[in-house]
C-alpha cells in the first residue's frame, strides 16, 4: 500500500475511532464507577490499523484519537487514564502479534485486559491503592469485551478489502 493511501486511511480510522468512543460514552454503565468499563469498540480500529498499516500508524491513530477526545471533552485526568490504558494495551498487542501465535481474538482480549490495567494504574496514581479493588472485575470484563472485539475484527478483516 502506498504511503499516501496509508495516511488517508489513518485519517479515516482516526475519525471512526473517535466517533466510536463518543458513542460508547453515551451508553449507560451499570455498577462500576471507574472509567474504562466500556466496550472498547475504538480498539477495533486501532488493532485493524496495526494489522493493515503497521504499528507506527496504529500508534499515530491512537494518540490522535486521545488528543481529539481531550480537545473536545476537556478532561485532563480522563486523558491521562486513556493514554495510560492505550499505551499499555498497544504494547501488549504489538508483542502478541509479533509472536504470530494468536488470532485477533486473543490479541484483542489481552489488549483489553492491559488497557484496563493501565487505567487502574493511572487511577491509583491519582487516588491511591484503593483503585486496585476493581482489578479482578476489570480483568474479566477487559478479556471478554476484548475477545469479542477481536472476533468482530477477525470477521471484518476477512470481508473488508483494503
Amino acid at each position: 500500500m502506498r504511503p499516501s493511501r496509508k495516511i488517508a486511511l489513518s485519517g479515516l480510522l482516526t475519525a471512526l475511532c473517535f466517533v466510536l468512543s463518543y458513542l460508547e460514552f453515551l451508553l449507560p454503565a451499570g455498577g462500576f464507577s471507574l472509567p474504562g468499563v466500556k466496550l472498547g469498540l475504538a480498539n477495533i480500529c486501532v488493532l485493524f490499523a496495526m494489522y493493515k498499516l503497521g504499528p507506527e500508524y496504529a500508534a499515530g491513530i491512537n494518540s490522535a484519537r486521545i488528543a481529539l477526545s481531550w480537545l473536545f471533552f476537556g478532561s485532563f485526568t480522563a486523558m491521562v487514564y486513556s493514554f495510560s490504558g492505550a499505551a499499555l494495551s498497544f504494547l501488549a498487542e504489538y508483542l502478541l502479534i509479533k509472536t504470530k501465535k494468536f488470532t485477533p481474538v486473543g490479541v484483542s482480549a489481552f489488549g483489553g485486559v492491559m488497557h484496563n490495567f493501565g487505567q487502574i494504574i493511572a487511577a491509583a496514581a491519582f487516588l491511591g491503592p484503593g483503585a486496585f479493588g476493581y482489578l479482578p472485575a476489570l480483568v474479566v470484563w477487559g478479556a471478554l469485551a476484548g475477545g469479542l472485539n477481536g472476533a468482530i475484527l477477525a470477521a471484518l478483516m476477512k470481508k473488508v478489502r483494503i
Partner: peptide, 19 residues
C-alpha cells in the same frame, strides 16, 4: 486452529484467577 486455541488458553489464564 492452533492460534485460536492459544487465544482461548490465554483468555482462560487471564480470566480464571480474576473470577
Amino acid at each position: 486452529s492452533k492460534k485460536l486455541r492459544n487465544d482461548l488458553i490465554l483468555i482462560a489464564l487471564l480470566i480464571i484467577p480474576a473470577v
